[in-house]
Design a protein around this nucleic acid. Structure first.
Length: 850
RNA sequence: GCCCGUGUGGCGGAAUGGUAGACGCAGCGGAUUCAAAAUCCGCCGCCGAAAGGCAUGCCGGUUCGAGUCCGGCCACGGGUACCA
């Protein structure tokens, strides 16, 4: 009997699929189309186990849809621009392009071993000039439509390395390489007008029925529509041209609780004042040392500087509020100025207590104990829908909800000429400029006479120069001897290229559309896009819930406007599944400066390095190359085969949940696949006539078909796998005749095929299946075979299970109740009395209340 | 800090508001074997002699019935706009 030998059979069937060309996406008018896409990988150099999980899930869906008779598009490519390639260039002196393409070659070979249904004829990398040239063409379209523009924005600046730092490259306010304190610096940068689409991106979420609620909620909160009041405080004694401070508040009902006004260190007033106030200038400089990351800003100690100026309260010209410059207010949010209401905002309360500012409650709870903030209690922030009593109200009822009070306050203010009600969004425009080499060049030229001029489309792609120097700090494109020098596309005078490149999120915001026609001479081929879009099932990590998915939704809309996508593709991802991450422990030691040095799992044994150094262990962390906690799936494939790797990552954990990688379990998966092979093989040798449980086995088979199908359709891969374990056990114990057993084993192979395609082909062939298992139609469960004649019902007494009974499937409710009441357990509990209540849930349970 | 999740045996987990712990791992016992590997069979939440009681992060609520719904906490994970 042939043993299961994954190493031998897997390449054989991969070759058979390739020869049959069964995974090449082909438009077919007789079939429904199905586009399944997993988020494409960054070519770090190696697949990690999280990739295997991601692509195994997509492959299950693709194989299932193929078997269900769809024309399937399942493409793969590379999200190939980005920081790590530049880091490799700086650390090892390799060219970012060489490094990236070598990584791609390596990963493509690793992909091949997984036996995925990918259509490699559509492969591309975002760093291919053919791809980013089309991206540049679209940038020009966006520019012409006013969707792209320039404005000033702050970046993290490393004054020693003379370079812009990503937030990730800032550690404790210092540059990761130089260790120098990071400064905020203002640069002119390119932006996309995503905020113009705030309302549209928000309201369209309601149509996305097949997106997880949590992702929609996160996007809603991110876009952050708010209704509030915009008004100005009159400023007394300010510098010239500063006689008012414009603020926006979502809680105008708390205006009578205002105790100070805070402005950003980057507010024009602060900028003006610091010219004549060295102490303030020092304070602002210190504040600007906090990085640009929201988290850092919010966590930093809240500090303020009293400008000595004051503003008049809009309702009472005698009431003065002090004006502070505060380090936690960002110029980019709202108007860069706020009024503080300490009684109803924990941040403002901290601030007020620190600087000894008044605290005034404007409302209190209707009932119950309440320690007011002015008496040392915490800031009182009830949900806006809750009705409260206004003790310092000025509009609406004495008792009303926050919502009602806000509307009343806005009305009152508008009627009295104090500001106006406005709707604002938290969502900011998308800054896409990067001062880096390894990205898509922004295709514009700066001309002294003509200003900013888009490159002519016939000159695209604007290719990155090959000869660059990473030895000196800063952006290599800036320092390149000739690359910047071009004639102006408009007047032909000598001019300079833009040296900013695009955020890599731009690359990943439209790749799904490019897959529909990867070779087209325009960004998309309208006919192909119309056929294949939208992505029917998108699968990827939940860490992309906001940025990537929101940017893609914006980009699809912009592409529709420019004619690159049909109007029906505004929402490019019809269904979304966010898989959990595969996590793994991180091992680290500290260098002389206390900075972490990471170690591979293979370098660590029993919590120590080879030289005996104790390592720190961070449990359950996201896998990342930089943290060196990546698990190598190639090792597992070498030992057990791809089917085992696939089976293993799909079993046990629910797909949406994080899973901590452990070595235990892979062997169990391999053992089970060998067992399945043995069971299938054995069915050929059982007697033609069995001991008469053919019907039972057939019922079991149909039940398995039903359950596994449901599992796959609902992304319950772990339960589908569990069901297949049970089916294998049932088949191995069956004493049915040969024909029934062979039939059952072949069906088992088909049901397993989305997860373990190679093994399934092997069994399919062994048991005389027609053609390839991969293209065989999915089995159908006969509903008549799924029901039992008799079932076991539990009997509860006062909600606790006390007994059970067997009843006919179609037993009448009254009969069931009578049987339950007659049972020993119930008789004993009743002790001759009558039950208070009897609840019968047909087919489920009986509960007797005594 | 803010937004969003998650929390069930020794471990991964199962369970349309209806028998908590399916299935797998580990462990224990047995069969087979000269022996081992492999394979097969069985046991396996905690306390208790039993009856029974206790158990789904913690506290409270709704319900005939709560792992599941609601409120408040705690812990962990993701995101936080220049990591991808």
């Amino acid at each position: 009997m042939a043993r299961y030998d994954a190493g031998a059979i897997e390449p054989k069937w991969q070759e058979a699929w390739r020869e049959a060309g069964c995974f090449t996406a082909t438009r077919d008018p007789d079939k429904p189309k199905y586009y399944v896409l997993e988020m494409f990988p960054y070519p770090s150099g190696n697949l990690h186990i999280g990739h295997v999980r991601n692509y195994a899930m997509g492959d299950v869906v693709a194989r299932y849809k193929l078997a269900k008779g769809h024309a399937v598009l399942h493409p793969m490519g590379w999200d190939a621009f980005g920081l790590p390639a530049e880091n490799a260039a700086m650390e090892r002196g390799v060219h970012p392009g060489d490094w990236t393409y070598a990584n791609i070659d390596n990963m493509r070979a690793q992909f091949a071993r997984l036996g995925l249904t990918l259509d490699w004829s559509r492969e591309f990398a975002t760093c291919d000039p053919a791809y980013y040239g089309q991206q540049q063409a679209m940038f020009i379209d966006f520019l012409e439509r006013g969707l792209a523009y320039r404005k000033n924005a702050v970046v993290n600046w490393d004054p020693v390395d003379m370079t812009v730092l990503a937030n990730e490259q800032v550690e404790d306010g210092k540059g990761w390489r130089s260790g120098a304190p990071v400064e905020r610096r203002e640069l002119t940068q390119w932006f996309f007008r995503i905020s113009d689409y705030s309302d549209e991106l928000l309201s369209a979420l309601d149509m996305l029925d097949d997106w997880p609620d949590k992702v929609k909620t996160m996007q809603r909160n991110w876009i952050g529509r708010s209704r509030g009041l915009q008004f100005a405080f009159g400023l007394e004694g300010g510098p010239d041209n500063h006689d008012r401070i414009e603020v926006y508040t979502t809680r105008p009902d708390t205006l009578m609780g205002a105790s100070f006004v805070g402005i950003s260190p980057d507010h024009p007033l602060a900028r003006e004042l610091e010219k004549g106030d060295a102490e303030l200038a020092a304070f602002c400089a210190e504040s600007r040392r906090i990085g640009t990351a929201e988290e850092e800003l919010e966590r930093a100690e809240k500090r303020g500087y009293d400008t000595g100026l004051s503003v008049r309260h809009p309702f009472d010209t005698d009431w003065r509020l002090p004006v502070y410059v505060a380090n936690f207010i960002l110029m980019e949010y709202g108007t860069g100025a706020i009024f503080g209401c300490p009684a109803h905002d924990p941040r403002d309360l901290d601030f007020a207590r620190k600087y000894d500012l008044p605290v005034l409650s404007t409302f209190v709870p209707l009932s119950g104990e309440h320690r007011r903030p002015e008496d040392g209690g915490p800031a009182y922030v009830p949900p806006k829908g809750e009705t409260v009593a206004y003790v310092r109200g000025f509009a609406g009822e004495a008792e009303q909800s926050g919502e009602a009070a806000i509307e009343a306050a806005i009305r009152f203010c508008e009627e009295n000429g104090v500001g106006r009600g406005v709707t604002k969004y938290r969502l900011r425009d998308w800054g896409l400029s990067r001062q880096r080499y390894w990205g898509c060049p922004i295709p514009v030229v700066h001309c002294e006479a003509c200003g900013v001029v888009p490159e002519k489309k016939e000159n695209l792609p604007v290719e990155l120069p090959r000869d660059i120097d990473f030895a000196a700090p800063g952006n290599p494109l800036d320092r390149h001897p000739t690359w910047r020098d071009v004639p102006c596309p408009s007047c032909s005078a000598p001019a300079r290229r833009e040296t900013d490149t695009m955020d890599t999120f731009v690359d990943s915001s439209w790749y799904y559309a490019r897959f529909t026609s990867p070779g087209a001479a325009t960004p998309t081929d309208p006919e192909e896009a119309a056929y294949w879009m939208n992505v029917d099932q998108y699968i990827g990590g939940v860490e992309h819930a906001i940025l990537h998915l929101l940017y893609s939704r914006f980009f699809a809309r912009a592409m529709v406007e420019c004619g690159h996508l049909p109007g029906s593709a505004k929402e490019p991802f019809a269904a979304l599944f966010t898989q959990g991450m595969v996590t793994h422990e991180i091992y680290l030691t500290r260098d002389a400066d206390g900075r972490p040095v990471y170690h591979l799992p293979s370098e660590v044994a029993d919590g120590r390095l080879a030289d005996g150094t104790q390592v720190e262990v961070v449990p359950s962390a996201k896998m990342s190359k930089s943290k060196k906690n990546v698990v190598d799936p190639v090792e597992i494939i070498d030992r057990f085969g791809a089917d085992t790797a696939r089976w293993f990552v799909l079993s046990d954990s629910p797909p949406e949940r994080d899973v901590e990688w452990t070595d235990a379990g892979a062997e169990a998966a391999a053992r089970h696949l060998a067992r399945v092979h043995r069971i299938a093989e054995a069915t050929r040798h059982v007697p033609e006539t069995g001991k008469g449980d053919d019907a039972a086995l057939r019922r079991e088979t149909h039940r398995a078909v039903h359950d596994v199908t449901l599992g796959i359709e609902s992304f319950g891969f772990n339960t589908a796998v569990a069901r297949l374990y049970a089916f294998a056990a049932a088949l191995s114990k069956s004493e049915a005749g040969r024909a029934s057993q062979v039939e059952a084993a072949r069906t088992m192979a088909q049901l397993m095929a989305p997860m373990t395609p190679h093994l399934s082909e092997e069994i399919w062939q062994m048991l005389g299946g027609e053609g390839l298992c991969a293209t065989a139609p999915w089995p159908h469960a006969d509903p008549g075979m799924l029901v039992e004649d008799e079932l076991t019902m539990p009997i509860q007494i006062n909600g606790k299970r006390r007994a059970e009974m067997k009843v006919a499937r179609d037993a009448a409710r009254g009969d069931v109740e009578a049987m339950a009441l007659a049972s020993d357990a119930v008789q004993k509990a009743l002790a001759g009395g009558a039950p208070k209540k009897v609840i019968v849930v047909p087919g489920k349970i009986v509960n007797v209340v005594v």
